[in-house]
Structure formats: structure tokens, C-alpha cells
Simulated scan of single mutants.
Amino acid sequence: MQADTQLTQDNVLERKCLTASEDMLLAGLVGRGIQRSRTPEMHMAEASAHGIRSVYKIIDFDVFSGREPDLAEILSAAEMTGFNGLNVTYPFKIQVVPLLDQLSANAKAVGSVNTVVFRDGRRYGHNTDLWGFAESFRRGMEGAARRKVLLIGAGGAGVAVAHALADLGIENLLVFDIDPIRAARLVAQLKINRPATTTEVVDHLDAGTVSGLDGIVNATPIGMAKAPGSAFPAELLDQAMWVADIVYFPLETQLLKDARKIGCRILPGSGMAIFQASRSFELLTDRPADPERLKTTFDNFVEPGGT
């Protein structure tokens, strides 16, 4: 797969010119509405398994009191205080790009970053979402039809998922976003980066648009605890479709509940979260992560409040 090749090349480059801290992981997750994220626990448990001390902080812009810092200030503060790097999530995956010194092949191709590594006075941007979604799909959706798929969301996560879907062999990819300009930009990008996949923008979701779909992927934050609801009308679902979501808190979004109720094959966001974390941990520490161990941590996570 193209994504795997690019990630391997990125990792070789990192190892040739950079050295990771041998005994400490200091990192954080930057985003909005992320208090229920399982990323910190996965990274800290994996670090412990490697004998590495770790501190992993949630940097949630939704809970700052007083003046809210901007993203550039957060990066500078983390870099100056010795962080190995940062994971970046909604809504900063595209916004962070101009604040970095160098992008990996994957990050450059998709224009979106979810892992920032601080090394030798430079900021390196990576995208592990692409491989994370692709690997989750390969393991969880074996044999799924791939002729015609609808992607909902063309933001920072959506661009990575779109490229992953193309690498997975989707023949015809429809892209919907509430911002049609953003959807058109992603389609234009895919025509250059993944020309073997036919891509087109859809400007509304109705029975005609979804006719003949094999699958649907939600790559928006709709369905998160802070943004409840579904990005796709339940009445348009058909049991012949498979349905995937990248949201994992809650584990079963409204979209997945609706799909499961009528018998659709479903793919939760947990797989993407685990596999992207596996690649991210390796970039931050220069040590291979164990996806099964990460999954155990993910599954045993107790959400804030004990739920």
C-alpha cells in the first residue's frame, strides 16, 4: 500500500537524522472537547511497557479559563519546556501545518498533521490518521464492497481518511461537507494525489445521492459527546451499506446506533484511534508500539466521572 510505503520512508528518515529521548516521554494532545480522549492513557501505558517514564497532558481549548492562547503559543510553550511532541486533533490538524518546519510525505500529501515531533530545534509534522484508518478498515471490514462510498467531512481528519479510502481501493468516492468549497478542494487534491479513484463533490444528502452506495464514512466531529447527533439522516440508511465512524467518544455514535439497528455492518472509530496512536508513539519515542497492548488499554479505559 502507498500509505505504508510512505510511513516506512518517514520512519527511516527520522531514525537517520534524529534521536529520541531514551527514558522520558513528555507529550500532549491539543484540541477541543477532548476530555474523554483515550490517547493519553494509551501512550502512557505503552511507555510504561517500554520502561519509559511518561507524562501526557490533555490541552483542551474548550476548558481554558481567562484568555485563550492561540495554537502557536501552545506549540512554543511545549517546545520550550522539553516536550517530545504533541498529538493534534479537531479542529487544528490543518491550522497547525504552517507552524511547522518540515512535513512527512503523508502529511505533505494530505495537508493535515496529527503528530508533531520536536527534535533538534525543529518541528516535524506527520499524519498517522491515514494509516490508522486504513489499517482499521483492513482488519475490521474485510470483504466489504468498495465500488461507491460516501465520505462526510473534508476537514483535517477527512482529508486523511479520503486518501486512505483511495489506497484501500475505493473506485468512486463521493465527498460531502457543509462547506462545499472545502469539499471541492479535497476532491481536487485527490485527483492529483490519487488519480485512480474517481472523486466528486455532492452538495446535499438525499435518496438520489445515496442510491447505490456500498458504504458511508463519517469524518466529522458530529457524534462526539460535545457535538451529539448524526452526520447522516437515519432514514437514508440501507442495511446493504456498511457504515464507519472516526468518532470514538462515545464508542457507539448515533450514526452507528442507527446503522446497527437496521442491520448494517459497522466500523467504530476505536480502530483508527488505536492504530494512529501506534504510529504516533513510534514517532515520538523511536520505539515500536504494540497495537494489541494499546487496544487493551483502550478497552479498559474508565471515562472521567466513572462511566
Rank of each mutant, 00 (worst) to 15 (best):
R32V: 15
E252Q: 15
G85R: 04
N172E: 15
A225V: 09
A231F: 08
Q95V: 14
N87M: 13
F61H: 09
R260V: 09
R67K: 13
A273S: 04
R147K: 14
I52G: 03
M44W: 00
R279N: 08
S270G: 10
I34S: 01
L165P: 10
E22S: 10
G269M: 05
L71E: 09
V243W: 02
E41F: 05
D4M: 06
F92C: 03
K295Q: 15
R147P: 01
N300A: 14
T220V: 12
S21V: 02
L26T: 09
T19I: 08
V12L: 12
G208D: 13
R122D: 02
K93G: 15
N84T: 01
L165K: 10
E282Q: 14
G153N: 09
L165C: 11
S65L: 04
M1K: 03
P180I: 13
I74F: 07
T19R: 12
D62L: 11
Q276S: 01
V88G: 04
V116M: 01
L294I: 04
G169V: 00
E135M: 10
A162T: 00
H204K: 14
L25V: 05
P228Q: 14
V159W: 01
G121C: 11
I192M: 09
V149I: 12
E200C: 11
R15S: 09
G143V: 10
H43F: 13
V201C: 14
L283D: 02
N218Y: 04
E46C: 07
V210S: 07
T296H: 10
A77I: 03
P221M: 10
E73L: 09
I59G: 02
V217E: 01
A154L: 10
G28M: 07
Q35L: 14
I216D: 13
F137T: 01
A105C: 13
T297F: 00
G66C: 12
A145V: 03
V302G: 00
M224L: 03
Q254D: 15
E171M: 12
T199N: 07
L29K: 05
L284S: 01
V202K: 06
L190K: 09
L174Q: 13
T81Q: 10
Q102S: 12
